[in-house]
Design a protein around this nucleic acid. Structure first.
Lengths: 341, 341
DNA sequence: AGGCGCAGTGTAAGCGCTTACATCATTTTT
DNA sequence: AAAAATGATGTAAGCGCTTACACTGCGCCT
């Protein structure tokens, strides 16, 4: 019962197949360099031995890990799931492995995870949004680890980003809603500190207010963590303020569904009594009652393009180029004109 | 601009601090073995050089990675998020890093990820549910990688598991619902192939039917992937069958919320016209309208206990012991007695 | 005073791979 | 037919770390 035989190594395979370790290594990494006969023989012994290359040894010798790290703010909801799935599929098809961790929207946790990922030899990193301590970007540059930012787009920043313009996306939605004649505007935003996406979305609403002849300073704004519960609480609180907003823009769909629940609890009809919007267009937006008017983010495309660009940065050792993938408004049932006073 | 200086190594630190590499290594891994004076000096040089140990080299030499892998079926919804979060927090506090990947409920993808994780030197693995090719368990045993199963509990299986009894949990819920006098029972289950949790939940409903004097073969059963859309579709389809079920048990909360939407679309009131139940008690269950009666799974406790047990298996080189954490019924608004015919 | 134990440190042998370079057997070229 | 190019394989030097073992000098014992 106690066969303490350690896992087979490259050497074992080489010996058993009667070739050198170099040949075995080539069979694995560069098969067309080896003659058919040898290759088949080696592959057979690999299989019969149940050999799996040792990753640490390999990455140490090759100074490459074919691993890419991604740090997302949360796994608690589906916001990043679809994009990440596409990201990982693309990576996989190009021979890379994805390492994911989540920072729970905490800057220090993210920083620690960045260091861990780098120490583990990640060939590149995907980060969400631009906002973070400049020292981190320095560190990454010093370690020569390519970084790409997603879910944001800002052509004026050194770090390349692939995503969309959160500000103008939110602005487009708000333009459309305000055109319905809403005068009292509320917004439930995610915490904007260290979160450029949240900040830009707020700015987008303000832009639209200004453009619509309203005073942006009149925006009733509450910032809360992204969760159903906080959405409900913030909404309830907001509805007790004067003037009571006739539309509440939410920082994302989760907050919006929370707000929807708050409305139901208060006996407010949506959109007759109050309009509510989301952001992201995750599946939830369609399941909610009423269905959410929201901003559709190019989840999968973002993931796919990010993977391509990051790999290019790694393999061609070049600077990444930013790309704006755009976002579009999805009009559903949660928005209507304000109630006549 | 082109300082091609590679990152500093242990050797660099040793040389600069005027000690041997062994001493530097000790300062990092076993500080109390080194005299205060030396330790301080070394730590200063480490800091001034910005040295980070090379993970591959370290794990190669130490034959330990302090890494634990987890493969979950999906990240698309929050089902595994809370438990995994707790798992990772526990690991982190004990100095381990978590590597997560998701298999999209696909056995072959899972198998590939298991091999990847093992090749990466994971010290241990967390897997969801028991069902998988026995060859995988063999492989894992041969590679001497401890494995722990979560989200299931089965004391009769060799692989240790920490979770709850899906069958009796679902049975308890069904007992309670059927006692309300429901005679026509429907169930929307997740795909049960290679998924013991899904199978056990079906069995639980059947157990309750039998106990309640019904014929378990009369269960109207549809199996679909876990998604809102599939829940809605399956529900719609099921409501067109004869006899039309007066209660629909769903394999999880996501399916149940999908079913809820289906009911709304068909103009059916819940629970007056039809009762619907979920499973998992993720936050969504509380946000849904009406709120879902469901089974509360001990998410965080499972994660925490799994981490403790897996680490014990690794560090004490012992077989893990299974543990049933139990689950409880949460009664909310989506269940009522059947409509009088 | 001589011997012992021990704390603190150094020496050096790997860990399992990749890859530059060397070697050898075939082809192809002139 | 000899020379050169080509293809397949082997040799061996690391990659950056950990750790068994060896060594040193000190305080303590008898």
């Amino acid at each position: 019962m106690t066969d303490m035989k350690p896992p087979p190594t490259l050497d074992d395979v080489a010996r058993m197949a009667g070739v050198s370790t170099a040949t075995v290594s080539r069979c694995i990494n560069d098969p067309q360099m080896v003659s058919d006969k040898t290759r088949v023989r080696v592959q057979d012994t690999i299989k019969s031995l149940g050999y799996t290359p040792n990753f640490a040894a390999r990455s140490m010798a090759a100074k490459r890990t074919f691993t890419i790290g991604a740090i997302i703010p949360t796994m608690e909801n589906a916001i990043f799931a679809r994009g990440l799935q596409a990201f990982q599929e693309s990576l996989h098809s190009r021979g890379y492995t994805l390492l994911v961790s989540s920072s729970a929207y905490q800057a220090d946790a993210e920083e620690e995870q960045i260091r861990t990922l780098v120490a583990r030899g990640a060939d590149g990193l995907l980060l969400i949004g631009h906002d973070r301590d400049p020292a981190i970007y320095d560190y990454l540059a010093r370690q020569r680890v390519p970084v790409l930012v997603a879910w944001s787009y800002d052509k004026d920043v050194a770090t390349p980003s692939i995503g969309f313009d959160n500000r103008s996306a939110m602005r487009a939605l708000a333009d459309q809603v305000i055109a319905l004649n809403h005068r009292h505007i509320g917004m439930i935003s995610g915490v904007s500190r260290a979160n450029d996406r949240a900040r830009m979305r707020i700015a987008g609403v303000k832009d639209a207010m200004t453009a619509g002849g309203l005073d942006a300073d009149d925006l009733t704004l509450i910032e809360v963590p992204y969760s159903f519960r906080h959405g409900t609480e913030a909404f309830t609180q907001m509805m007790q303020q004067e003037p009571r907003p006739s539309v509440v823009f939410c920082g994302n769909d989760v907050l919006a569904v929370g707000a929807l629940r708050g409305a139901k609890q208060m006996g407010l009809r949506v959109p007759e009594d109050v309009s509510i919007t989301g952001f992201d267009d995750i599946e939830l937006a369609e399941v909610a009652q009423p269905e959410l008017t929201t901003v559709r983010v190019p989840h999968r495309k973002m993931g796919t393009r990010a993977a391509e660009e990051l790999i290019a940065m790694i393999e061609e050792k070049r600077t990444g180029v930013s790309e704006d993938l755009g976002a579009q408004i999805v009009t559903r049932q949660s928005v209507g004109p304000p109630k006549a006073p």
